[in-house]
Design a protein around this nucleic acid. Sequence first.
DNA 1: AAAATGAGCAACCGCGAGGTG
DNA 2: TCACCTCGCGGTTGCTCATTT
Length: 276
Amino acid sequence: MGRQPCCDKLGVKKGPWTAEEDKKLINFILTNGQCCWRAVPKLAGLRRCGKSCRLRWTNYLRPDLKRGLLNDAEEQLVIDLHARLGNRWSKIAARLPGRTDNEIKNHWNTHIKKKLLKMGIDPVTHEPLNKSETKEENDQSSQSDQLATEQFPETENNQPPPPTKVIDETSYSPTDQNSSSDESNVRGDCNVYENDPLISCLFRDDPPPIEFPWEFPTTQENPSGFSESSWDQNCQWLLDCQDFGVHDFGFECFNDVGYSAGNGLELDPLEMGNNQ
DNA sequence: AAAATGAGCAACCGCGAGGTG
DNA sequence: TCACCTCGCGGTTGCTCATTT
């Protein structure tokens, strides 16, 4: 029984998106908002699969996206979140304003992984490499496996929570507490970090409202200067651009919207929430 | 200067979750 | 309860560009 393809493969274009396609997609979403992705390509006049449209939008065209490499704070946060959540990139991304799961995943695979290995840390377990090797041997024991499964049923590979001393001491170290790598445990740690608004925000049940509903906040406090106008108005100039190429100018102007420029980690989640 | 190799990243694929009739 | 559909996620691929030989 073959799975039904997400779209009609015939006549569906694949590969890199052109500026023209980007323009069509942005134009459509600005006009209609995000609706049924399956219908988007048809309605927008794109010969693309709906899935591809969604991916393009969420990973590249969304105006609140930050571009460029992750800064040190973001990178440290990714490492720590990965230690707790494992490869749940979307969950990790939800706690990094303006970053996408794909971007974080790529950054992890290309930069952080190597960095950790260089430091002698196993990027999977977040334990010192020699220690994890020893541990792997010990893990042959079915007893320990069972214990791990019981204690951390949802943990990746049923591994016990990684230790946290591996995290750079110069950064905050929320994982210094006993913790597991699952979200429930993330939540469980919240009280520990109550005093730190950033940390407590990061480990809240519901992540900070990073995902704007594709409308810019209308608060007068918005320092970006976008506060008075609508999303449509703000983006209209984009659509008027000749040779539209989002890659080339990266929506930088939007990065200031809704949170502090340059470093989204400085945002105040409560304030953001009010802004919506 | 050209070929080989590696790194980075956008995009694709397949699967599972959740919603609906 | 079941089948179907859409969406989102995570793993993987493959293209492009930079660096090395």
